[in-house]
């Protein structure tokens, strides 16, 4: 049987979801778009290290946006920086 505390938290969260309906909707949309972008970027790196313009061209995303994603994926340990290729660095998926 659900404890009183758990029941009250569940009801509280329900009320909070109602209260923050608009911002939650925005955040969900953002997550969906971001997940698609991350998937497209990771897909490009599956075949090995690539530069930002190469990833962007393959993923169909602007280069500045790709760099923000790659920098973030690097920060959270999902991407590593590889060797330099001309004026650009290559980025690759971090080993699991």
């Amino acid at each position: 049987m659900m404890s009183d505390q758990k029941k009250s938290d569940k009801e509280g969260l329900k009320a909070l979801r109602q209260q923050r309906k608009a911002s939650i909707e925005r955040a969900r949309k953002a997550i969906k778009a971001q997940n698609q972008n991350v998937k497209a970027i990771r897909e490009q790196m599956k075949s090995g290290g690539k530069t930002i313009p190469e990833i962007a061209a393959g993923a169909g995303l602007p280069t500045d946006q790709v760099l923000v994603y790659v920098a973030s994926l690097k920060k959270y340990g999902m991407v590593i920086e590889g060797p330099k290729d001309g004026d650009y660095f290559k980025y690759e998926l971090a080993p699991k």
């Binding site: 280069t63 500045d64 760099l67 790659v70 650009y88 660095f89």
Partner: peptide, 11 residues
């Protein structure tokens, strides 16, 4: 963690 161009990652 290095200086690159924000538009495309060029050094």
């Amino acid at each position: 963690q290095r200086v690159i161009r924000p538009s495309d990652g060029k050094e």
